[in-house]
Amino acid sequence: MNDHLILKKDHTLSLLRRLMREHRLVAPLRNRHGDTLFAEVDDLAGVELDLEHQPQASLKPFLFPQQETMFRYRLDGEGGGYRFEPPEAGRPLLFFGVRACDLSAVLYLDVIFSRRGRDPYYFARRHDSLLISLACNQPFANCFCNSTKTGPFLEYGFDLQLTDLGDRYLVEVGRARGAELVGRWRHFFTPAEEGDRKAQYQALLESRSHFQRQVHLEQAIRRLQADEPLPEELWAGLARRCQDCGGCAYVCPTCTCFTITDQQLTATEGIRQRSWDACTFGGFTRLAGGHNPVDASRDQLRQRFLHKLLYDVREHGRPSCVGCGRCLGICFGGVDIVRFIDLVCEVRQ
């Protein structure tokens, strides 16, 4: 089967409506404050789909929510019982308009949440989900997926990848589920012509030439792999500027540190919750009694940067920064990952 198809832009919403019968649609919407955010869509009529701007948050909250109930626990008095009841899974998700960086991040999350067996909460949402990505014809101001090799177009990982060709999308079919989708809704698609594929290639070349940032990620990784310690002052300087807000970790599509807490609801009932945490928080490693094996005043950001750029390279063969640039926009202390990469490159070997 030809895995390059054409979907007319005019037909896109009706295709989505069909898919929404079985899936919960998550797509980038422009809200009344002018923000572009992924949101669950109940009815396409009342919303403004925004495929022009970079969504300010990633897909992470839909697969790994900021706070979620792991189970409800019940105590049945008189030494009777201590029972644990997990929640039921919802309808499968359909993610539409996902940028290459965010989709690459989901592939990383798949690996992280498969440690020691599949994470039941993550995979309850990820399993059966559909990912329809939108290639970036025009990178945004802080993007550097060209250096992380996670965009602006994808080669794999998507179910369908769309490339905007003006009045139509070129559709590439990725995984089996994508093939199933186009098979089932065949009348929405027509075969792509040679000219469409050329136009897509042209768009890719142009997009690649439009990155505004030069990020020397490979050079920085080589320096880190050399295993010579970085100057203490580099770490301390970053730590001094970090305000411990956790914003970089929350907004980052690949940061997954979490904490677990119980919340009592009644004398005999409560819930256990999992919530986002951040390794940059001063108390992240603090032990009962107050001792902290990580000196936050010196090493506050060390774990975040080295995990992404060194430890994951060693463990998975590639860094876990996907170059989305969100931490650049959010940090008022300027201690984003590009600052770190630049500083590492400046260190004399």
Partner: peptide
């Protein structure tokens, strides 16, 4: 070693020693 630990499954990363995890 004793460390702050939440999941015990090598995911939450509270117990890190840099590249290593105490739980895993």
């Amino acid at each position: 070693l004793e460390r702050h630990m939440k999941c015990g499954l090598g995911v939450c990363r509270h117990c890190h020693l840099g590249p290593k995890l105490v739980c895993a």
